[in-house]
Amino acid sequence: MDKGRVVVSWTGGKDGCFACYRAISKGFEVSHLLNFREIQRRGSHDISPDLVYAQAEALGIPLIHKDFVSYEQEFKKVVRNLRDSGEKIDGAVFGHIDTHKNLVDRICGELGLELIMPLWQRNSEQIINDLIDSGFEAILLSVKADLLGKEWLGRKINENFIRDLKNHNPSIDPCGENGEFHTFVTDGPLFKNKIKVMESEMVLRGGYWFLEISKFNVEKK
């Protein structure tokens, strides 16, 4: 059943991707992925636009990337521009679990969009287990250096990851909801093709270890 056309807030990580999957499973049609990067600083989940464009290509869904000073203003501008160009946008999908509810409530309220948050206030470990069971593949792209060493970079999100994370530090949220780590999705049930990392290096910056990917391929599954 078609529930309407939506845009998806997209960082390239597991939460937005899984929220997108859940929305599609419920009958929503995704018009565009919206990816925003802050101009003033590089954040801990800042993924190269080349990588998120590769994801969009692998998914077969158009992506709009914008640099921003104000996320809220840029998001509203993009949706209004889409509507002005003739696109029907009924709702917006976000992968937030415990944060930013007031912000996205306000954005959707002002735009007259249905707010869709499939992961909101769900148990983090259950989300990770559901992500794995659904067939998604994601790797750690950045980790908070005082909690996780650089050896965690590039690790796949799987059952072993959950076990090892608990053994390493039980206080770390399994979804990294407190900024402990950020991920990049390389494959899954929505993907027509998969992304394979070919070359990368580990860089320490701003209290985070980053896996900076310099070469990757989009390959047939």
Rank of each mutant, 00 (worst) to 15 (best):
L115T: 05
L82M: 08
F210H: 14
F210S: 11
K101H: 05
K88M: 12
E219M: 14
S171R: 09
L141G: 08
K66W: 10
V7G: 00
N102L: 02
L59Q: 10
F28E: 04
K3N: 12
K196F: 08
F184W: 10
N217M: 14
I61G: 05
P62N: 05
P62I: 02
C17Q: 07
S85G: 01
V104G: 00
L34M: 14
A138H: 09
K88I: 14
E29H: 15
N169R: 06
Q73K: 05
V79Q: 00
V69G: 01
K221T: 09
L141Y: 12
I89L: 03
N217R: 10
E74L: 00
S142R: 04
G86R: 06
T186R: 03
F184I: 07
F136C: 06
K150W: 00
P62F: 02
A58E: 13
L141M: 12
I64P: 11
E219K: 13
V30G: 15
L82I: 04
C108M: 02
P49Q: 11
I132F: 06
R41M: 15
A92L: 01
S214T: 15
S48A: 15
V197M: 07
H100S: 07
L34R: 04
K144C: 09
S124E: 13
M202G: 03
E177M: 09
F136P: 11
D84L: 12
E212G: 08
G207Y: 14
D164R: 12
H168C: 05
S124F: 08
Y71L: 13
E219C: 12
K77F: 00
G91H: 00
T186H: 06
S124G: 08
T186A: 07
A58G: 10
E72M: 01
G27Y: 09
A56D: 10
K14S: 06
L141D: 03
F191L: 08
E201P: 06
W10Y: 04
R83C: 12
I128Q: 09
S134Q: 05
E29T: 15
S70M: 12
P49N: 11
N102P: 00
Q55E: 14
G43K: 08
Q40C: 12
N193V: 03
N167F: 14
G154Q: 02
S171D: 05
N81Y: 02
G12W: 01
D105F: 02
C17T: 14
I47V: 15
H65L: 03
S214K: 15
I157M: 04
L148M: 05
E159K: 10
R5I: 03
K156Y: 09
L103P: 00
K88C: 14
N158C: 05
